[in-house]
């Protein structure tokens, strides 16, 4: 319902708007993580390490709903909608193409909001383990959350035996997205 913007705004302004969207989104992932049963039982060090390595991937899952694959537009969290060519001009083409592709694949699985939330929890605790001090505790948390996701999906779709494995196949995609794009630059105006 938002007017497609971009024409009258400079690429610098769009870039700043894109960058500023990340700050609240990251804070929301941190709050989300604290709500995951068992997450706060991890050491503070391990909580920080998992968040640092997994937040970008959780954001990729969360941002899926902002990508309209049919109309090739992206709606930022501030409500502004941009056509893909406008954003491509900012040099974010490769990241956006990868996110469109990922959001189409994940979107096709038709997850319910609670299933998506549980999947994001699994994504976070499945993130890169470098720097983790208590590996056993993180693995136990991951196993518990994966079991919960599997049983939630199985009980809702008893005859769709492939959905859970299709979901797990998205984890390497997310890791690739993270490795390819988390070094993208953001710009914050300092007045």
């Amino acid at each position: 319902a938002w007017p497609v913007s971009g024409a009258e705004r400079s690429s610098q302004e769009i870039w700043e708007s894109f960058s500023q969207c990340f700050t609240p989104a990251v804070k929301e992932v941190v709050e989300f993580a604290k709500g995951i049963p068992g997450f706060q039982e991890l050491s503070q060090h391990d909580q920080v390490m998992l968040l640092k390595s997994g937040t970008f991937q959780v954001l990729m899952v969360r941002f899926c709903t902002l990508f309209n694959a049919d109309e090739r537009t992206v709606t930022f969290l501030n409500g502004q909608t941009y056509p893909l060519p406008t954003l491509r001009a900012l040099g974010m083409g490769s990241l956006l193409d990868a996110m469109f592709d990922f959001s189409e694949k994940l979107g096709s699985l038709g997850l319910e909001p609670d299933e998506m939330a549980l999947f994001m929890a699994v994504v976070l605790v499945s993130a890169d383990r470098s720097g983790i001090s208590d590996m056993r505790a993180v693995e136990q948390l991951q196993e518990g959350l994966s079991r919960a996701l599997r049983s939630l999906i199985t009980c809702r779709r008893p005859d769709d035996t492939s959905l859970f494995s299709k979901l797990l196949l998205r984890l390497p995609d997310l890791r690739t997205l993270n490795n390819l794009h988390s070094d993208k630059l953001l710009a914050f105006r300092i007045d």
């Binding site: 990251v26 909580q47 970008f56």
Partner: peptide, 25 residues
């Protein structure tokens, strides 16, 4: 004149997480 702080997505994410946990200690 307007100046800009440029940082990678990963560094920006790390910065916000470190700030959050420091504030809540």
């Amino acid at each position: 004149p307007k100046t800009h702080r440029i940082m990678t997505l990963a560094d920006h994410i790390s910065h916000i997480i470190t700030q959050d946990f420091a504030r809540n200690q």
